[in-house]
Amino acid sequence: MKVEEILAMLIRFPSVVGKPNDAIVDWISTYGQAAGAKATVLPGPEGDRANLLITAGPHNVPGYILSGHMDVVPAGEAGWKTDPFQLRQDGKRLCGRGTTDMKGFLACALAALPKLAASNLQRPVHLAFSYDEEAGCRGVPHLLAALPDLCAKPLGAIIGEPSRMQAVRAHKGKAAARLDVVGHSGHSSRPDLGLNAVHAMANVIAQAVVYGRSLEQGPFDDNFEPPYSSLQFGVVSGGQAVNIIPDRCTADIEVRAISGVSPRLLLKEVKEQLFALRERGYEVVWHELSAYPALSLPREAKLAMLMVELTGKETLPAVSYGTEAGLYQQAGIDAIICGPGDISRAHRPNEYIELDELKACQKMIEDLGARLAA
């Protein structure tokens, strides 16, 4: 199948983050086996979602991983010209949810797979496709935990997030959490008889915002914009009516951490502020929503130099968005970002990728295979 035909098939699966993904996993697994590769389905603890590992070549020697996620963000935003889950061609543009982020890369890897499987690979190429990346890289840790039983430790991982086919060596880490505060309800005319959860949360938020501003004082990494770690609250909800003392309030917070800084540790102070409310009679809960580490690969790393040779382009020092690459690096596998498309097209109506970008990515993967077959 041509790369655009495979992409059309992948787009038809509405594999929205947080939803069951058995349909797309089954199709890719069947395709991989028909291409002559070994496909292993790795169910996640949720019970209705799975990761997938497809291997071309010998599994017992070190090779390379091509990493991508099968999930996409929802397509409910206004502005779509046609069904987002049906591929639409507009000249050289192929439009649909996930074309750039990141089913385009998956299609390129699958289009190259028959050639890889038919080659006399001395080192393997693994296609590692995960679930729920868009929820904070929730699926790939389970894949990484299973990897030692499935193959020799890989030499490196290429994470195919959209980068205009220019390899990227670093991104920030991230952690997100949901804060719950429970007080006591009552009539607003007697605030002394209630316990206002919104007021308590407001104090936590105010202290956290001050703390967040202190992060602007460093440490710094000039490869990023902004060059420091950051904090923000993105969602706050609570209360029923203005004359009812609100007994519940919820807030979602995230931090973005430069390389060398733990995202979870950045949230430690905020967590302490939340739990201090217990002394005032409130009930509180801290839910970690997601966490993944930063990526930082040296320019002189073998994987970085390999990508220069494969793409014909110098590596970029960093991007602002996050990927699964930091988790691969944390697991002891060198990782780098390189994929077709542009991140500015992702999560928007009429998301698209260009046919030439797909062909360039497929060529890069086939060239990698040719090196491993030499």
Results as ranks from 00 to 15, higher is better:
M70A: 11
A112R: 01
E77V: 02
A35Y: 11
A35C: 14
G32M: 12
L66W: 07
A56W: 08
A56H: 06
T82F: 13
G68M: 11
L116N: 00
R88M: 13
R49S: 10
G96L: 11
L94T: 13
G47Q: 15
R97I: 08
E46P: 01
F105D: 06
G91F: 01
Y64A: 00
D90E: 15
G96C: 05
G91W: 00
L106D: 15
A35I: 07
I54T: 09
C108A: 15
N120V: 03
G68N: 13
K115C: 03
V72H: 06
K81F: 08
S130M: 05
D71A: 08
L94C: 02
R88G: 00
P114K: 04
P45W: 11
A50D: 14
R88L: 07
M102W: 13
S29Y: 13
Q86P: 01
Q33R: 15
T100N: 07
V41E: 14
K81C: 10
G98V: 06
D71R: 10
G104V: 07
G44P: 12
G79R: 06
L127D: 07
V61I: 08
G32I: 06
A37G: 02
R97G: 06
H69D: 08
S67E: 09
V61F: 03
V72Q: 00
A35W: 13
P62C: 03
F129E: 05
G91A: 00
A37M: 11
L121A: 04
C95K: 06
A128K: 00
